[in-house]
Design a protein around this nucleic acid. Structure first.
Lengths: 114, 114
DNA sequence: CATACGCTTCGACGTCTGTCAATATGTTCT
DNA sequence: AGAACATATTGACAGACGTCGAAGCGTATG
C-alpha cells in the first residue's frame, strides 16, 4: 500500500536522508498551530468538508494568511480542495495520516503494519 | 494519563490555539530530516541508547549542528540525555510518541483512547 | 455590463531556523 | 599539571517562515 511505501517506521530502523526528508515534509505541514487548527476544523466538521469562508474567523488570522496555509496543506497532501462556484471546499485526506501513523508506530505495531 | 492530558485528538474536535500550539511544538521538534534521523538512530539502536559520538558521522553534519539538534530534541521531551563522564548518552521517550499518536488518532481509535 | 463577493497572489516585513567555524567547558589519562 | 578528547556554546549568516495589506482574478447576481 502507498502509506507503507512512503513512510518506513522511524522507530524500527535508521532512516536515510531521503526517507527522513519525506516524513519531515508531512510533519512540517502540520507543525504550525494555524494549520493544525485548520486540519482540526475540517476533520471534525459533521459534513466532512468545510468552506474556506468558515475558516477565517475562528482562526483569528487574516483571510490571506488562511488561504496561504490552506494552500500549503493541499500541497502537502493533507487536505483536498474542491472549487464550487466562488467557494472552495476542503476535505481531509485520511491516507496521509495513516502514513504518518505508520511512520510513528512503535516497533510492535510496526510488525503488524509492515 | 499524561499523554491524553497533553494532546487531544485533532481529528475529533476543533482544537483551540493553546492546544494546537502544544501539539505543534512536538511536531516541530520532529519536522526536520536531521532530527528525524537522530531519533531514528537512537530508537533503532539495539542497546536502546546511543552515545553522541556515534551520531555525528552518520548524520553528515558538523558536531556543533548535531549537538544543537540533540539539545532541541531533549528540550522537546523526545529524547533524554544522560551524561556519563565525557560521553552523553541519549534514549527515546516513548510517552512522547504515544502523545503524538493520540493526537493523530482517527476518530474511531480516539474513542478507545479517550 | 457593472457591481459585489470569495479567494488567490504579490510584495514586504520581522522573526525563526539550520548550518558551520571557532571557542569554551568539562573529563580522562599520562 | 598538562595533553587529549567529547561535547556544549557562541557568533554569524543565508534562507525559510508566518503574517498582513493591497491588488488581481474568476464567479455570481442585479
Amino acid at each position: 500500500m502507498a502509506a507503507a511505501a512512503c513512510c518506513p517506521p522511524l522507530l524500527v530502523r535508521a532512516l536515510d536522508e531521503v526517507e527522513a526528508t519525506e516524513i519531515a515534509t508531512i510533519l512540517k505541514a502540520l507543525a504550525d498551530p494555524a494549520r493544525l487548527r485548520l486540519v482540526s476544523l475540517v476533520a471534525s466538521s459533521p459534513a466532512g468538508e468545510v468552506c474556506a469562508c468558515e475558516l477565517t474567523e475562528p482562526l483569528g488570522r487574516s483571510q490571506a494568511t488562511v488561504s496561504h496555509h490552506l494552500t500549503q496543506l493541499v500541497k502537502a497532501g493533507v487536505l483536498t480542495r474542491d472549487q464550487r462556484g466562488k467557494w472552495a471546499w476542503f476535505r481531509l485526506r485520511p491516507e496521509r495520516f495513516e502514513a504518518l501513523r505508520t511512520a510513528l508506530a512503535l516497533p510492535a505495531e510496526a510488525v503488524v503494519a509492515g
